[in-house]
C-alpha cells in the first residue's frame, strides 16, 4: 500500500489512467478539509470562551442531557462504518447495487442523526434557550447547527453520488467522488467527537 500517494482511503495505482487526477483531487480535498477543520477549531474556541457568558440564562449544565447526543453518536458512528462498507463494494467488487445499498443505509443513519439533532434543538428553542438568549447559547447555536449543516450537505451529496453511480457506473470521476465523500463523512464523525466531549460531556462535569 506504500504506492498510493494520498493519505487515507486507498484506491489505486499509478498505472491507472485516472489515478493521477484522483490523487490530485483527493489531496486537494484533504487540504480543503483541513481548512474546514480550522473553521470548526475557531468555533470550538468561541464556544469555550463563551461558556461562562450565560447572562443569567440557562447554563450548559442545566440545559444538556446525554440521551439525545448519545443516540446521535451511535447513529453517526454506525454511518461511518457503513460508508466504509459502501466503499469496499466499490473498490473490490465494483458492485453498483451493493454500493448504493450501503450508501442508502448511510443516508438513513445521517437523516436519523439530523432528526434527533433537530428535535433537541427545537426543544431548546421552546424552552426559551434560543440563540438570542445569551452569548453562550449563541455559541452553542453556532457550533451544533454548523455540524448538522455539514451532515445535511453530506446527505445531499450521498444522494447525488448514489445517482451518479447508478447512471455512470464506476469511472474515475464517480469513484473519486465517493472517495472524497467518505473522507468528508469520516471527518464529520471526528468533529462530532469534539462536540460530544466538549459540549455534552463537558456540561455534565
Amino acid at each position: 500500500m506504500s504506492q498510493a500517494r494520498h493519505p487515507g482511503l486507498k484506491l489505486g495505482h499509478e498505472h491507472d489512467p485516472g489515478s493521477g487526477e484522483v490523487e490530485a483531487l483527493v489531496f486537494g480535498f484533504w487540504i480543503f478539509m483541513m481548512s474546514d477543520l480550522l473553521i470548526f477549531g475557531c468555533v470550538f474556541a468561541t464556544y469555550v470562551v463563551m461558556l461562562p457568558q450565560v447572562a443569567d440564562g440557562p447554563s450548559a449544565a442545566e440545559l444538556f442531557h446525554l440521551r439525545g447526543p448519545l443516540i446521535e453518536t451511535t447513529l453517526l458512528l454506525a454511518s461511518s462504518v457503513t460508508i466504509g462498507f459502501a466503499l469496499l463494494e466499490t473498490k473490490h467488487r465494483a458492485d453498483k447495487r451493493r454500493t448504493t445499498l450501503w450508501l442508502a443505509v448511510t443516508f438513513l443513519l445521517g437523516a436519523g442523526f439530523l432528526f434527533s439533532s433537530t428535535h433537541s434543538l427545537l426543544g431548546h428553542l421552546e424552552n426559551g434557550a434560543g440563540p438570542s438568549r445569551s452569548a453562550f447559547l449563541s455559541a452553542y447555536w453556532l457550533l451544533v447547527p454548523l455540524h448538522a449543516l455539514h451532515v445535511a450537505i453530506g446527505c445531499l451529496w450521498i444522494a447525488v453520488a448514489a445517482a451518479q453511480v447508478r447512471i455512470r457506473g464506476f469511472d474515475w470521476v464517480t469513484t473519486g467522488g465517493l472517495l472524497r465523500l467518505s473522507i468528508y463523512w469520516h471527518f464529520l464523525d471526528i468533529v462530532w467527537i469534539g462536540i460530544l466531549s466538549v459540549v455534552y460531556l463537558g456540561a455534565m462535569i
Partner: peptide, 17 residues
Amino acid sequence: LDRYLDFHFFTTDAGGI
C-alpha cells in the same frame, strides 16, 4: 448572525464579547 438572527456574540448585552 448577530446582525441578521439576533445572536449575541459581539453585542454589549447578553454576555457578548
